[in-house]
Amino acid sequence: MKKAIIDHTAKSAVVRYCFFLLMLLTSTMAFGQTPRGRVQVIRDPLFDTLLAKRAMLNSGGRRNSSGSYVSSYGYRVQIYSGSNRSAAFNAQARFNMEFPEMRTYIVYREPNFKVRAGDFRSRIEAERMKNQLNGTFSAMFIISEKINPPKTVVSND
């Protein structure tokens, strides 16, 4: 009697093993990918232009006189930093009255407004401007950041 029970369990184990192999083979055949054709990608000709423009914008570049993009780092003098917006605009107006040819920039990083002036290529130029403004503005700093390069005069002579 015991022998019959053992044979029965052995037969069911073999059946389970065969069923497992059958399922494994059918799943690999069902999920296997066979190449049926070629994929052809058709893209708009403006796509390359957009990629080039995106790369230029991400690099923060500007065009120079030859038409190529140039980005440069330099220095600016920070003349105001505070949370009062009207005081920031007043500081910018006061600076623009003294130096109308120099560019000023207002940067807002919550909760402070920062007024920065100039596009200096060297720290020495920024130090000179800071010394000129010493009595006019208090708590000035020299900041290193990406600047707008000064315009160069191109002559055709």
Rank of each mutant, 00 (worst) to 15 (best):
S65A: 11
I79S: 00
G37A: 12
N58S: 14
R116K: 10
G60P: 08
M97Q: 14
V15H: 09
D157N: 15
P35Q: 15
M140L: 14
L57K: 09
V39E: 05
I5C: 12
S81I: 05
F113M: 00
A30R: 13
R36F: 11
R62G: 06
Q33W: 13
A30Y: 01
T26E: 02
F137N: 04
M129Q: 08
R36V: 06
K2Y: 08
K3Q: 14
A30I: 06
V15I: 15
P111C: 01
R38N: 12
F20G: 13
P149T: 08
F47H: 10
S68V: 09
F141R: 11
L46E: 09
V107E: 09
S83N: 11
G74P: 08
Y17L: 07
I79C: 00
Q40Y: 08
T152G: 03
S86K: 10
T152D: 07
R121Y: 12
V107Q: 03
T9L: 07
S65W: 14
R43W: 04
M29A: 13
L133N: 02
P35C: 07
A55Y: 03
G60K: 06
K130F: 01
R94P: 01
V15E: 15
R85V: 00
P111R: 01
M102F: 04
N156Q: 14
L57W: 00
A126Y: 10
A52F: 09
L46Y: 06
S27C: 11
